[in-house]
Design a protein around this nucleic acid. Structure first.
Length: 850
DNA sequence: ATAATAGTTCTTTTT
DNA sequence: GAACTATTAT
């Protein structure tokens, strides 16, 4: 499961006390920190920091000025540049670590940056803020929450939480009958918050004659009110409320404006308006009268002031690449980067185009694809490492066929010396993992899925977390509702409504209603159950501030009987659920080990804000599976980009959105540019989604790659967007090359053949396609589609030895060459008569001894 | 109040 | 094929 254990930076003091090194340091040396450095600043130790850099990179490290935009193409060494720039600022004593704020996209990127700065300058790297927008805002909000109606112990609603809340609200307002869905409402609210609009602002701009808009306003209002009551923020609030805080309370803003003298933002192309506004607020100069107030409040300001008595705005460095902007759907505004020079006058722009990651063939493909996006600044990646291997293309008959190709190629790569951890498989949608996982398990390829159905999204984990939230934040009724009847206590919907009514009538929280359950006149059994829960939560709450998180969780699990109930259940899955909760307990212990001072709130925050890429473990010897979105910022020796089909990549949903197709192209571009040495593009002719088999067409993006760059092991031939597929040709398997196939797609090959060389591993698929398409038209489901899906097969302890003959559902008959591994991990290497040599996990492979 | 069953709708990407 | 909803039987 989630192997990675969150690590938390030590809590930091924001107000500088005289004991703070920055305080003494700043007053103890001549020259104001942050003052522009002369040419001498990079003498001595500084030279080390620019070693091995190209001239543009060097300039990006050394430039000093108010604002700098680094346009960094994929693989152009921007992380090196950023870390050296930070190291340079500290090394040259232009800044103290505590004056630096670096924002990254994921916690993982933050950890990496911290590590690399540490490598460059050692201990002095401590005290910097290197974090995501969301984490940084949580730190600020925890300090300042009391300023505006929240408390320090606020909790964070993840998307599932806010959806659940919206669902309640929609139901209460009968908005579902008006055609409102939860995802619409949450999408709209998120969008508004990203534009820094709140319910009241929105109310002023709506057409009051439109009942839809009026109703939505009511939803928005209630949602906002419920969050406030629950002492909780949603993801978007974290940013938007911080901006609000800064704007409403200039003296609070001044604290941070004074503190952060150098702000650096990575992945700037994916910032939304709220994040942009936050950066604007943070880089604002502090007016003289606010400076006076700071000084009166005991803040050190003397050497920070300029001639007019104010504190000048922090310097800003942003790094980004508009070609890698893939989060517009989440409100990312590409204009933030395209209009940077306008927004921050006198800014410097540096272009990094030399790529240090990929071969020229891969870059040529990437450049050719992205050139189809008009309306972009011309930029072309180049390298000096040479052309490298051709891109390998493959078209499977089905998603499973495609997955088998990926597995086979991975096995070959691994045999050739490529470590599993240097291989990644990308896809557009999470649902594509299923086919890949099945084949990988069978083929005994170790893998891990990043993101997807995350550990923390499992129901039993959410239940356990809800217990923790209820202890940390008694004001949150959502968490309380979740656990009220988990494990079963006989508190059904009727009882819950009664409790809620009591709470409303007496104008108290739901938690208070639980405590006073005896006043409700319910049955003695239910009343006992309710007060029992209330007592448990109250008892544990008493220790919450100081006790280790694992102790708190253990007390809750034992007190509630959560795990006991699962263990006692007849449902075999419940045993696995119980184990997951034990796993969570292990996570809390690990957390405590890494953060001896970490509180329950720290733990909850950390868990809510971890991104998919965050639990990537570089040392693990496993292939990584992830969506293209998760892949951003990562790189691998070998990359498999799967499902390169129309309606999948570009995704069908993107067609109707303005800018959608262009964003999909950027996504494809991001995927391509992750590869260092080898790139595989694959697709399937039919894809089963949601039980149904559909005919899939090759993606238009494939036609944008020059044909000579791709070596098709099995080309899509004429199965192109004109809609024609040739089942006859599909079944024809020829050996040797075929010009038609080498020409690639859409190049006018007349024979409509499934050209190219048939793959070595034949022996299956023959005839399948006919049945599949025919069946797809008549029946929604076919036994063919489900043949390899369904529950994981279990061969028990099938004994196999070298020399045995076996039969495989896909590969036909073969002879066992060798058996390795132990117990459930026993692997048979089999030489198939027609399908070549494969490794199979004996326990689950669809095989029989014959 | 709950467990089991049958029917419905849906899937893009995520901090 | 999953996840949620509505309907039934206990």
């Amino acid at each position: 499961m989630s192997g990675a254990v969150p690590t938390l930076e030590p809590t930091m003091t924001i107000v500088l006390e005289p004991s703070d090194p920055a305080y003494n340091g700043a007053s103890g040396r001549s020259g104001a920190p942050g003052a522009s450095a002369g040419p001498g600043a990079f003498g001595g130790a500084g030279a080390r920091l620019t070693e091995g850099l190209n001239p543009q990179q060097k300039e990006a490290v050394e430039y000093r000025g108010q604002s700098l935009l680094i346009v960094a193409g994929a693989g152009s060494g921007k992380t090196s540049v950023l870390t050296r720039r930070i190291a340079g600022l500290i090394d040259s004593r232009e800044a103290w670590p505590s004056q630096i704020l670096a924002i990254t996209f994921t916690n993982k990127a933050a950890a990496e940056m911290r590590e690399r700065v540490h490598q460059l300058i050692g201990q002095s790297a401590d005290g910097m803020w290197i974090s995501t927008f969301h984490s940084a805002c949580v730190r600020i909000l925890r300090r300042e929450a009391e300023q505006f109606g929240f408390t320090k112990s606020f909790t964070i609603y993840d998307s599932a939480d806010s959806r659940a809340l919206l669902k309640r609200i929609l139901k209460e307002l009968d908005a579902d009958t008006m055609g409102f869905t939860v995802s619409q409402a949450s999408g709209k609210i998120s969008k508004l918050k990203n534009e820094l609009s709140d319910a009241e602002t929105y109310s002023r701009q709506i057409n009051t004659g439109d009942p839809q808009e009026v109703l939505f306003l009511e939803i928005f209002r209630q949602y906002t009110r419920e969050l406030q009551r629950a002492n909780a923020f949603d993801f978007d609030d974290l940013i938007a409320q911080t901006v609000y805080l800064f704007r409403a309370f200039p003296h609070v803003a001044a604290l941070y404006q004074r503190r952060f003298r150098h702000i650096l933002v990575d992945e700037y192309q994916d910032t939304n308006h709220a994040q942009y506004a936050l950066i604007r607020e943070l880089t604002r100069p502090v007016d003289p009268d606010e400076v006076e107030l700071l000084e009166q409040g005991g803040q050190y300001v003397a050497t920070l002031r300029d001639g007019s008595g104010r504190i000048p705005g922090a310097s800003l460095t942003v790094v980004g690449d508009s070609d890698q902007s893939i989060y517009a759907f989440r409100g990312a505004d590409i204009r933030n980067i395209t209009e940077f020079e306008h927004d921050f006058p006198n800014s410097k722009v540096i272009l990094l185009e030399q790529n240090y990651r990929s071969t020229q063939n891969i870059l040529d493909a990437a450049n050719a694809v992205i050139a189809n996006n008009f309306d972009r600044q011309a930029k072309s990646l180049f390298t000096t490492v040479g052309a490298g291997d051709k891109i390998i293309g493959f078209t499977g008959y089905t998603g499973h066929d495609e997955a088998q190709f990926v597995a086979d190629e991975i096995a070959t790569l691994h045999d050739g010396g490529t470590a599993y951890k240097d291989i990644a498989v990308f896809y557009r949608t999470n649902s594509q993992t299923r086919a890949l996982e099945e084949i990988f398990i069978r083929s005994a390829i170790p893998y891990r899925v990043l993101g997807g159905t995350k550990f923390y999204e499992r129901a039993e984990i959410k239940d356990a977390m809800a217990y923790l939230i209820s202890v940390a934040n008694p004001a949150d009724p959502m968490a309380l509702r979740r656990i009220m009847n988990v494990p079963k206590r006989g508190i059904g919907p009727a009882t819950e409504t009664a409790l809620q009514r009591y709470a409303d009538q007496h104008e108290v929280g739901l938690r208070d209603a639980l405590r006073n359950a005896s006043e409700l006149g319910l049955g003695p059994k239910v009343t006992g159950a309710i007060t029992g829960l209330a007592t448990l939560l109250d008892d544990v709450s008493k220790t919450a501030a100081t006790a280790p998180v694992s102790d708190i969780l253990l007390a809750l699990i034992q007190g509630s009987g959560l795990v006991d109930a699962l263990r006692a259940s007849r449902d075999p899955q419940d045993e696995a659920r119980a184990e997951n909760i034990d796993e969570l307990l292990a996570v809390t212990k690990e957390f405590q080990k890494n953060n001896p001072e970490g509180t329950l709130l720290d733990f909850l925050t950390e868990v809510t804000l971890v991104a998919a890429a965050d639990d990537l473990d570089d040392t693990s010897g496993t292939v990584s599976l992830m969506t293209l979105h998760t892949a951003k910022g990562l790189e691998y020796e070998a990359v498999f980009l799967t499902g390169v089909e129309e309606d999948l990549l570009p995704h069908r949903m993107s067609a109707s959105e303005p800018g959608g197709p262009a964003e999909e192209r950027r996504l494809f571009y991001v995927g391509i540019t992750r590869a260092r040495q080898k790139l595989f593009l694959s697709l399937a002719m039919t894809r089963a989604q949601f039980g149904e088999v559909n005919v899939a067409m090759p993606s238009r993006f494939l036609q944008e790659i020059p044909v000579e760059l791709i070596d098709w092991k099995q080309s899509p031939g004429m199965a192109n967007s004109r809609g024609g597929t040739q089942p006859r040709a599909l079944n024809a398997r020829r050996d040797g090359f075929d010009e038609g196939g080498r020409r690639g797609i859409g190049s006018g090959s007349g024979d409509g053949g499934f050209g190219g060389r048939a793959r070595a591993a034949g022996g299956y698929g023959s005839g399948s396609y006919d049945r599949a398409t025919a069946a797809a038209k008549t029946r929604p489901k076919t036994e063919w589609a489900n043949r390899v899906t369904g529950t994981v097969r279990d061969n028990g302890d099938l004994e196999l030895d070298a020399g045995d003959r076996i039969s495989h559902v896909d590969f036909g008959e073969g002879r066992v060459v060798a058996v390795t591994g132990l117990g459930a991990r026993r692997i048979a290497e089999v030489q198939f008569d027609t399908a070549g040599r494969k490794k199979l996990l004996i326990k689950v492979a669809p095989i029989e001894k014959i």
